[in-house]
Simulated assay, not measured.
Amino acid sequence: MAKSAGTGAVMKKKKHLKKYITLYLIFLPVAIWYIIFKYIPMGGIIIAFKSFSPMKGIGGSPFVGMANFERLFKSSAFLSVLKNNIILSVMDICIVFPAPIILALSINEVKNKMGKRVVQSITYLPHFISWAVAGGLFYMFFSVSKGPVNAVIKAAGGAGINFMGSSVWYRWMVVLSSVWKEVGWGSIVYLAAITGVDEELYEAAAIDGANRWNCLRYITLPGISSVISVMLIMRVGAILSLNFDQTFAMLNDSVLSVGETIEYYVYRVGMSSVNNYSLGTAIGLFKSLIGFVMVLGANWASKRISEDGGIW
């Protein structure tokens, strides 16, 4: 009986493999990429517990335990960077994250197909511009001397504002640039989710006399709430991970105290100036652990709020 049950299980697995072999082959390159570039490098986290020297290698470098982490948390510079990172991440979650949802809902309400396509094309285009170019465009657009924004302010009788060099305005420039560049691309996920909402629900609501706002509130939003939940959990998990390319393109010495992020700090202190690879690895490990805890917490909270919420 046991042998027969085992044979049946093997045949069932073979049948399953034969049925989905195409999907497995499509997924194989992705799996190989993740193994090579994501999982194998995890062995390098031991550098965070050593005084790493490229000449001695990982094995020959002396073990220092938690010394790199103690040095990290005693550094006032790192605590300032951590504060900047948290503030920018909260602004990102509160402003940048909802923007694609609002855009997707707005596009869905546009009944003219040509108008809908034009809006989608215009909002998608900035995603394909590199941050090096996008940062340059923002510096030009908000320039004190020649920027059109300051030209309007001066024409109205105001004084020019150094948006990109002001500690008051810089964070808002980061948020604005993120919205401008990614709002269209981010809306694709939500537009796809909206298409999965049952059309019969809208027809029934129309018969009951519901207007478009009621349909949006009671049908569309609940219909895509699970997708919003998953995307929010993923964003909360990356609360300490901000776009390095964006920071590198937009940051300058005038706003270093309010705009420096953890990634840029690793580049500037851990890699660029003193080649302290151990410190950079310690920062990366700390960031990953915080992200892991945040994902668990956000998933737990989502499951508590809604049965359909959460990733698992």
Results as ranks from 00 to 15, higher is better:
89 S>E: 02
293 V>N: 09
119 V>W: 00
101 I>G: 00
242 L>N: 12
157 G>A: 12
73 F>S: 10
94 C>T: 15
199 E>I: 06
230 V>E: 10
71 R>I: 09
229 S>P: 01
138 F>C: 00
272 S>W: 08
113 K>A: 13
2 A>S: 09
60 G>D: 04
66 M>C: 09
68 N>Y: 10
101 I>F: 04
225 S>F: 05
65 G>I: 06
136 G>I: 12
155 A>H: 09
111 K>R: 15
3 K>T: 11
126 P>G: 14
268 R>A: 12
25 L>H: 01
43 G>C: 07
93 I>P: 03
69 F>T: 05
295 V>A: 06
92 D>I: 07
36 I>S: 06
92 D>F: 14
162 N>S: 11
163 F>M: 07
71 R>N: 15
129 I>Y: 03
188 I>Q: 03
138 F>E: 01
105 L>N: 11
107 I>D: 03
14 K>N: 14
230 V>P: 03
121 S>D: 11
184 G>E: 05
215 C>T: 12
174 V>N: 07
15 K>F: 10
45 I>P: 01
196 G>P: 01
168 V>I: 15
27 F>N: 11
116 K>A: 14
281 T>H: 00
143 S>Q: 11
7 T>W: 10
43 G>R: 00
183 V>E: 04
73 F>T: 13
290 I>F: 00
23 L>G: 07
86 I>K: 10
102 I>Y: 06
257 S>E: 13
193 A>M: 09
253 D>L: 13
274 V>T: 13
3 K>Y: 06
227 V>L: 08
304 R>E: 10
42 M>W: 08
262 I>A: 07
154 K>C: 12
206 A>R: 15
45 I>E: 03
295 V>P: 05
78 F>R: 10
184 G>N: 03
223 G>V: 04
119 V>S: 10
210 A>P: 07
46 I>C: 07
219 I>Q: 02
172 W>A: 12
151 A>L: 13
130 S>G: 14
213 W>K: 02
55 M>R: 14
220 T>S: 06
192 A>Q: 03
91 M>L: 15
62 P>Q: 13
29 P>S: 01
178 S>C: 07
213 W>A: 11
202 Y>A: 02
50 K>C: 00
155 A>M: 13
154 K>Y: 10
92 D>W: 13
226 S>N: 12
56 K>Y: 13
108 N>T: 12
312 W>G: 05
7 T>N: 09
32 I>P: 00
196 G>H: 05
212 R>V: 03
57 G>Y: 04
25 L>V: 13
78 F>K: 09
